[in-house]
Amino acid sequence: TFTSYQLEELEKVFQKTHYPDVYAREQLAMRTDLTEARVQVWFQNRRA
């Protein structure tokens, strides 16, 4: 599960791009204290 802060950050990036590159995902992962893999999976699920 994600915190409301994490979801907010993820959604913010999703609004800009549905396909963030690895750099964007790593920045987001650091900001949200998630792994890059978790961020990647979240985007895959969000796009589905």
Rank of each mutant, 00 (worst) to 15 (best):
N45K: 11
V22Y: 14
Q40M: 14
Y19Q: 15
L28Y: 01
V41T: 12
D21L: 03
A24D: 10
Q6S: 02
E36W: 06
R38D: 15
T3C: 06
L28S: 01
L10G: 00
D33L: 10
F2I: 07
A48W: 07
Q44C: 12
T35V: 04
E26V: 11
L28T: 02
L7C: 07
V22I: 12
F14W: 14
V41F: 14
M30W: 08
R25W: 04
H18L: 05
R38Y: 09
Y23H: 13
V22W: 11
Q44R: 08
V13Q: 08
Q27D: 13
E8F: 09
F14V: 01
V39S: 12
R46C: 05
T17R: 04
Q6C: 03
K12H: 15
A48H: 09
L7V: 09
D21A: 04
P20H: 03
S4L: 11
T35I: 04
A24Q: 14
Y5C: 10
H18M: 12
V13C: 08
F2G: 02
H18N: 08
M30I: 12
E8D: 15
Y5R: 09
R38E: 15
V41A: 14
M30R: 15
T17W: 07
L10H: 01
L34A: 03
V39M: 11
D21H: 05
L10D: 00
Q40W: 10
L34V: 04
R47E: 03
Q15K: 10
L34N: 02
Q40I: 11
E26R: 13
L7R: 06
R38A: 15
A48K: 11
A24C: 15
V13G: 04
T1R: 11
T3F: 06
W42T: 15
S4E: 13
R31P: 00
D21T: 08
T3M: 05
A48Y: 07
E36N: 05
M30C: 09
Y19I: 03
E11S: 03
T17H: 06
A24T: 14
Q27T: 07
K12Y: 05
L34R: 00
P20S: 01
F43R: 00
Q44P: 02
L10P: 00
E26L: 15
L7K: 05
F2H: 03
R46W: 02
F43S: 00
T32C: 13
E8A: 11
F43W: 01
A29W: 04
T3E: 06
T3P: 02
D21F: 15
Y19E: 04
V41P: 01
A37D: 12
L34Q: 03
R31I: 12
F14S: 00
D21R: 04
D21I: 03
W42H: 01
E36M: 15
A48G: 10
R25N: 03
K12V: 07
V41I: 14
T32H: 04
Q44G: 05
T35W: 03
Q40Y: 13
W42V: 15
L10Y: 00
V41E: 15
R46N: 03
A37P: 07
Q6G: 02
D21S: 11
T1S: 13
T3R: 04
F2L: 14
M30G: 11
H18D: 05
K12C: 07
Q40F: 10
V41L: 14
T1Y: 13
Q15M: 10
Y19F: 11
D33A: 11
S4N: 10
R47I: 07
L10V: 03
